[in-house]
Each structure stands twice: as C-alpha cells, then as structure tokens.
C-alpha cells in the first residue's frame, strides 16, 4: 500500500518505553584499577610476561594468551594522544555549539578515553604529551569520572 492509499483517519502508532537500570560490578581487575585511582591517584596496568604486553586498564587475564595476570604495574599519569576528536553532538544526538574535545591517550599497551581540557581545540594533535588531572581526593568515588580530564604538559 502506498501512503496515498492509506486511511488518514486510521490510528497511526503507539509509543512505548522501558526504564533499564543495571548494576555493573567492576570485578577483581576493575576494583583494583578504580581503587588505585580513588585512593592514590594512580593508573595501574597488568603485565603479561609471556606476551610482553601491559594492559591498561589492568585486567586479570591476557586477551592474547588467555593467561592469568597478577603482575600489577604503575604506568604513571602522563601519556601521548594516540587519537582525538572534536565532537559536535550530545549523547542524545542534539547538536553542540562548543565541541567536546576527546582523546585516547596511550598508557602501557592500552590507554584511557577521556576529555581533554585546559587546551585550545586548534592546538590538539596526535602525539601530544598530556597528563591526567584527577578530581580532589575527597570528591573521588572510584569511577572513570574521578579523572577530571587530560591536560597538555607545558
């Protein structure tokens, strides 16, 4: 049936929605990773001696050899911008006047995705050295939001 043949008085559609709320347990690896951020302002990875790879955020298994990992390492709080973007849409698809500056910063053989702050958008480039700015310890809750943003090292 084409649109033209359709009865304009017919009911058209019903709308429905669903509240979805879940608990996401961090697990053994995630708990250790986020506790180090919260309590010590440290980024921890785990090292696989067999594959010579350091996973950041730390995990309790190596995705390459599937071996169990228990060698936790402090990878510091400075890294390089591996890639970045200026994002002009909000979470729900609505447009933004000012873009979010987002970067993936390398730590070990992994890294962290977060906002880049205290920087002009035009100055951001791949390879740029940045550091993590943590929220004050009293405000940290043990989540990725305990990191305020990255900022360039001047």
């Amino acid at each position: 049936m084409t649109l033209l043949k359709r009865n304009p008085k017919a009911p058209q559609a019903w709308q429905g929605n669903l509240p979805v709320t879940s608990r996401y347990t961090f697990g053994l690896g995630g708990e250790r990773f986020f506790r180090a951020i919260k309590d010590e302002g440290k980024i921890l990875g785990t090292h696989c001696p067999k594959c010579e790879r350091t996973y950041v955020p730390g995990t309790i298994f190596c995705e390459r050899c599937l071996g169990k990992l228990d060698e936790w390492v402090d990878v510091g709080t400075t890294g390089n911008v591996h890639t970045f973007t200026l994002l002009y849409e909000n979470y729900d698809g609505s447009p933004r006047e000012e873009p979010e500056i987002i970067a993936f910063v390398s730590f070990g053989d992994g890294g962290i995705v977060h906002r880049l702050g205290e920087v002009d958008a035009e100055e951001v480039e791949i390879g740029m050295e940045v550091e993590i700015v943590f929220k004050p310890q009293s405000e940290r809750e043990g989540s990725i939001l305990d990191i305020a943003h990255f900022r360039p090292i001047i």
Binding site: P57, E89, D92, E100, R115, L145
Partner: peptide, 12 residues
C-alpha cells in the same frame, strides 16, 4: 564502566 559514564555521543 569505562566509557558510558563520560556521556559522549557514540559517533566519537
């Protein structure tokens, strides 16, 4: 846990 709390549109 790692990404969604930042509330970025996924096009990023």
């Amino acid at each position: 846990v790692l990404n969604r709390p930042l509330r970025f549109n996924t096009h990023f």
